[in-house]
Design a protein around this nucleic acid. Structure first.
Length: 643
DNA sequence: CATTACGGCGCG
DNA sequence: AAAGCGCGCCGTAATG
């Protein structure tokens, strides 16, 4: 069995460094390396011993203790821990551990080659695989056709426990900074799926250190005031890491022919690097003609600004929204140019050549990549796919895309966090903003939305600021929670999400500036600056608590989706061959939205799974508190058809 | 020459 | 009407 093949998925960074574009329109000169193309063709789908057993099992997340309305785990994450570590010579050591992280049996040494088959053999027990870094280990298993049910990602969990106010007094939190606190070195040429992954685990490579770290984490959880919340968070974070690796592995279905047709329609026929496509060049000519500057490069912001001022337009920037307000013959072609130039540079032919391999888009997802707990991505801009190009995301023949979006997720999270029953009631069974209008709080849905966003982001002026008092009157509990979070931030304190992720503390310069403002010799300007910075940090913590708790809900939702999808019966399906080739699976995630690629016959069942999982996630976070998490769900052939 | 900063814009 | 949060990536300009 071939485990590693070519080095990596295509990467933006390597492509970018190869670019050399002294002039305006730049397209790179290099496409994906031949290596990458080969990589995709050779993608190893060897299955070790056929499909995983589908067994009835308790949820990956934990049960709900209704008494306290807080989820509590009594099962210690499924019972069996198997710790995976690399040994000195590159073999893998698998060590059974008891719920306290102590060795509970003989360790087993395996070669990298034998490791996937071993994992597959243990999966019927559904152990929790404890390893340093899912993103470096799991792709090896996926490439061998092996999925696991449960994982525990020591690095991601360490980051949470290190920062959380719930574990502040733990040994783990008080220890000196260690290699667990440093992100593994990132090398775009080697660090990615499909590599000989164990060769890369060079940061922590002795099993003793890994076992000790796991024990420190278990102790920190056990001794904290709210172990149930943290256990749920760590299980969800770890499940997210599995999902991220699986989505990177399978990729998002992408039709390059559809994409190319779309680009050609918008921009004109494809041209070589460094040349503007026809429609873009025509627009550039119009702009030059109107401005009377034949040599103008519209991509040069300073030059463009000068030219605009020269014809009497008083602009402070060249931003589209500012230009939109102006009346001048140059505005229309300029806005059109900006739109198309963005399409070309961000998602044009070069992007397509770089990121779409054999009909799949393979971005790298980075769980925990955002301070609030949201995911980030690296390469390909997966979280910014413009609506313009979503038509190229098309289900395979005989398959469907089921797209689900959590409607008004953050306001609902805020309602539940603050136990604001009025706000929760406004969203019961309906669009929450419409519910606010129905309650007579504001006149229009747009007003409800902009006011809510203002409450969660800390708006002070404009329409949003004006509407806030009405919102505060109708939903005092919810607004009090955001205010309290903001005040804490202004004092330099951290805030903590529903499940226990805490915001970072402000940095040295922030603290120094606050201290300086209290100095007897502080000037008016010092104080003003300090106040402004304090308010900035307050807006951050205000938003952190909502965005972070929403991210936790989304992780629980996805973990539950993944678990339930694997329980769907495959009646009439060909169950031989790799699981992802015939079973429904997650292919995309965007903060509050998921996409499942499924055989058409199962689309209805998948929709049910998505809705059920949303309810379950809500109960996991908020117990019996009566808040709805409504979804808009659509079964479609193309992503462009969703909402 | 290469790296960094910034304005701009896409997404939630 | 374009503010108030969180991001990644692009091209150009500035910096070393």
């Amino acid at each position: 069995m071939r485990i590693s093949s070519c080095r990596s998925w295509p990467r933006g960074s390597s492509g970018r460094s190869a670019r050399s574009t002294p002039t305006s329109i730049s397209s790179p000169t290099t496409g994906p390396s031949p290596c990458c193309r080969r990589r995709a063709r050779d993608r190893c789908h060897a299955v070790v011993g056929g499909r995983d057993h589908v067994t009835k099992s308790p949820p990956d997340c934990v049960s709900t203790d209704a008494r306290r309305s807080i989820p509590v785990s009594n099962r210690q994450n499924g019972g069996v821990y198997l710790l995976v570590s690399r040994t000195g010579n590159g073999d893998v050591l698998v060590l059974p551990l008891d719920p306290d992280g102590r060795a509970a049996g003989a360790g087993r040494r395996l070669s990298k080659r034998d490791f996937p088959a071993y994992v597959h053999g243990r999966e019927p027990e559904q152990p929790r695989w404890v390893w340093e870094d899912t993103s470096r280990i799991y792709p090896l298993l996926l490439a061998a056709g092996v999925r696991v049910h449960r994982g525990y990602d020591l690095r991601l969990c360490h980051a949470i426990l290190r920062q959380s106010s719930l574990t502040r007094s733990s040994t783990l939190a008080r220890a000196e900074e260690s290699s667990w606190d440093r992100a593994p070195a990132y090398d775009p040429d080697t660090t990615t799926a499909g590599v000989t992954l164990f060769d890369l685990i060079d940061v922590i490579d002795d099993e003793t250190g890994v076992v000790l770290e796991f024990q420190r984490q278990l102790a920190a959880i056990r001794d904290c005031a709210e172990p149930g919340r943290l256990r749920l968070l760590l299980a969800a974070e770890s499940a997210g890491a599995l999902i991220a690796a699986e989505m990177q592995y399978t990729g998002l279905p992408w039709r390059t022919d559809v994409h190319d047709a779309l680009l050609t329609r918008e921009l004109g026929p494809r041209v070589g690097p460094g040349i503007r496509p026809e429609r873009l060049e025509n627009l550039a000519d119009s702009i030059r003609a109107v401005l009377g500057e034949p040599g103008l490069n519209p991509d040069s912001q300073p030059d463009l600004m000068r030219a605009l001022r020269h014809v009497g337009l008083r602009v402070s920037s060249t931003r589209a929204w500012e230009l939109k307000e102006l009346e001048h013959p140059v505005i229309a072609p300029l806005l059109a140019y900006k739109k198309l130039a963005r399409l070309l540079s961000a998602n044009g032919w070069y992007w397509m050549d770089t990121w779409i391999v054999d009909g799949r888009f393979h971005p790298e997802y980075i769980p925990g990549g955002v301070v609030t707990g949201r995911w980030a991505t690296r390469g390909g801009g997966a979280l910014q796919l413009p609506k313009q190009v979503r038509g190229a995301v098309v289900a395979d023949a005989g398959w469907k895309l089921v797209v689900a979006d959590a409607a008004q997720l953050e306001p609902r999270i805020l309602a539940a966090l603050s136990a604001d029953t009025s706000m929760a009631a406004a969203g019961r069974g309906t669009d929450l903003y419409a519910g606010i209008v129905a309650g007579g709080v504001v006149e229009t849905r747009e007003h409800a939305k902009v006011a809510m966003l203002g409450a969660m982001y800390g708006a002070t002026s404009g329409e949003s600021g004006r509407l806030l008092p009405r919102l505060a009157k109708a939903f005092p509990r919810a607004l009090a929670l955001t205010e309290t979070a903001a005040r804490a931030g202004e004092r330099g304190e951290s805030v903590t999400t529903r499940l226990g992720r805490s915001s970072p503390r402000p940095g040295e310069t922030w603290l120094a500036m606050q201290a300086q403002a209290y100095d007897p010799g502080a000037t008016e300007a010092d104080e003003r600056r300090a106040r402004s910075q304090a308010r900035d940090w307050g807006r951050f913590t205000r938003n952190f608590i909502v965005q972070g708790s929403a991210a936790e809900w989304a992780l629980c939702w996805m973990a539950e989706i993944r678990r339930e999808l694997r329980l769907l019966p495959f009646a009439g399906q060909d169950s031989s061959g790799p699981e992802f080739a015939h079973a429904p699976h997650l292919v995309f995630f965007l903060h509050d939205e998921v996409m499942v690629h499924t055989p058409a016959a199962l689309a209805g069942a998948v929709e049910d799974v998505l809705r059920r999982a949303a309810d379950t996630a809500g109960r996991h976070l908020f117990g019996d508190f009566p808040v709805d998490f409504l979804l808009t769900v659509a079964t479609v052939d193309s992503y462009a058809q969703a909402k």
